[in-house]
Design a protein around this nucleic acid. Structure first.
Lengths: 214, 214
DNA sequence: CGGGTGCTTGACTAGCATCAAATGTAGTGG
DNA sequence: CCACTACATTTGATGCTAGTCAAGCACCCG
């Protein structure tokens, strides 16, 4: 028994080589244009990142080329922590985005609680499992809008920034179904959609929205 | 920027009080009967566990009383690591099971790589997301059987131990659909089912099974 | 023997995917 | 300024998949 024990405290991120994007001097902020790639599957994992502004999508491609978005990371959230030292997924900016890399240089050991980040991401992933499996398409979309609303507390109007196909690939639905769900939410007077791409949500009835996700 | 930084090295499990089950003297192994509870939602998290034999199901209950199984833990796998110090889910033995608790006593700090455990569980959760969202019912069941088969390398016959409703609640399907998928796998001559409860799988065509999960 | 449990099968239905097309907006070039 | 293309979103029609409800079977135990 207990063959799997290893020693504590190997709590710095793996990977030592320098890559294209983490080449930024002294781990300073990086500005990204919409859809710009941060890292790709198969690359050497050499840094973790914190979002300072904007949003990042983390996704994988299936054997059939299907995209599946594991998570969206908003301001303050961390991403890029991997089990091994090779990337298993892709990271891209959703919109105009600003991120801050943290490399694992031996001399500049940054005091980051990697365990806390990992556990937070685990909790997010588990919550997403519940959302996806238990609920109908409408409830999934409602849960998504609610998740976005939580990132803009006190604002009743905010820009989701994600396209319909981003949302579809995140919730395991099709673009058409997502669009239909948004019109249903509009018909129910729970929200209004503004902006040329209909990505700006104005929440009319937050309580009703929350009630839908239960 | 960077408000969320905290200090490294708080890598011991939270919780200091003693609970009913971890009261076992000196963190020795615990034997469990089928369906015996290990911990429940809302309890104080005071230990993490490693499975020595058998299997454990980790699940949550939705507001409507629906059970959703987040993961099954087999031999060698760890569970019970939480973000806070309160349990957010339930843990039960699937069958006759043996687990080993690790408490967070200040004097007996066990050298466990909690980060590695957290990242492994994160990877499992992410993989499960892909299985659930991308695939049809048949593919999900195939993926499940494959997952079980991976726990019994070189054996072409093994006992899954989980009931049909366990599998259904794990894959986000109904019992009937799971049963239908198993008959399809039988009809395709990919496996045979033995035992009084039809839980013993005999793999006839492992390659075909893997091909289904892609 | 009867009742309980777990698995399977059948008939029917609701909901989402699929295919197809329309709308709206921005950008380009005549 | 208008025609044209390109792209994102929306809407409509149709079919299939999995959920629901119901029943039947196999096994076990009192």
């Amino acid at each position: 028994m207990l063959q799997n024990q290893t020693i504590v405290k190997q709590t710095t991120v793996e990977g030592h080589r320098h890559g294209h994007i983490a080449g930024a001097a002294r781990d300073q902020s990086i500005r990204l244009k919409p859809d710009e790639t941060i890292y790709s599957e198969g690359e050497h994992a050499l840094a973790i990142y914190q979002v300072e502004a904007g949003a990042v999508r983390i996704y994988r491609l299936t054997a059939r080329g299907q995209r599946y978005i594991l998570s969206f990371c908003g301001k303050g959230e961390w991403f890029g922590l991997e089990t091994g030292n090779v990337r298993t997924d892709f990271a891209e900016a959703v919109c105009e985005t600003c991120i801050r890399p943290f490399r694992a240089d031996q001399d500049t050991v940054v005091p980051i609680d990697l365990l806390h980040i990992a556990l937070t991401n685990l909790a997010k992933a588990q919550h997403k499992q519940l959302v996806i499996t238990e609920q109908s398409a409408l409830k999934r979309v409602a849960a998504f809008v609610n998740e976005m609303a939580d990132r803009h507390p006190r604002d009743c109007e905010f820009d989701m920034m994600m396209s319909r196909s981003d949302i579809a690939d995140y919730l395991g639905l099709t673009v058409e179904t997502v669009a239909r769900c948004f019109t249903k939410l509009r018909e129910k007077r729970i929200l209004r959609l503004n902006g040329k791409l209909q990505r700006v949500v104005r929440l009319l009835d937050h309580d009703a929205l929350i009630a839908m996700t239960i």
